[in-house]
């Protein structure tokens, strides 16, 4: 099971700024290990963020995104105290979902 994400969300002038840190190896599938064998690809494919049951962000990622990715985005309409839920799913089917409270 992957480590929890760090989610920070701040509302200002009706716009919520969300910053997310994810813990993930993000292996490209291009690298070789010490014995010369390819390290199998392992990366986050889909990221979604929902607010009050409504999807506010969908992202399709690939192996070009770095290890332990950082994601920042903004959306309109969030209020202080409400929750934002971020979910990712990787190419091996592993999933992780965490929530943050808007400040």
């Amino acid at each position: 099971m992957a480590d929890p994400m760090r989610i920070r969300a701040v509302a200002r002038d009706g716009v919520v700024n969300v910053r997310v840190l994810m813990s993930h190896e993000m292996e490209t599938g291009q690298r070789k290990d010490a014995s010369g064998k390819l390290v199998p690809a392992h990366f986050i494919r889909n990221v979604t963020a929902t607010h009050q049951g409504k999807t506010v962000l969908t992202a399709l990622w690939g192996p070009a995104v770095a290890k332990n990715p950082y994601l920042e985005f903004e959306f309109k309409g969030g209020q202080k105290g409400e929750k934002i839920i971020v979910t990712w799913e990787d190419n091996k089917g592993d999933k992780r979902s965490d929530e943050g409270v808007i400040n």
Binding site: A59, A66, Y70, E72
Partner: peptide
Amino acid sequence: NRYLGIGKNLGL
């Protein structure tokens, strides 16, 4: 761009 995690090594 800012909606996508920019690969850090790629960024460099």
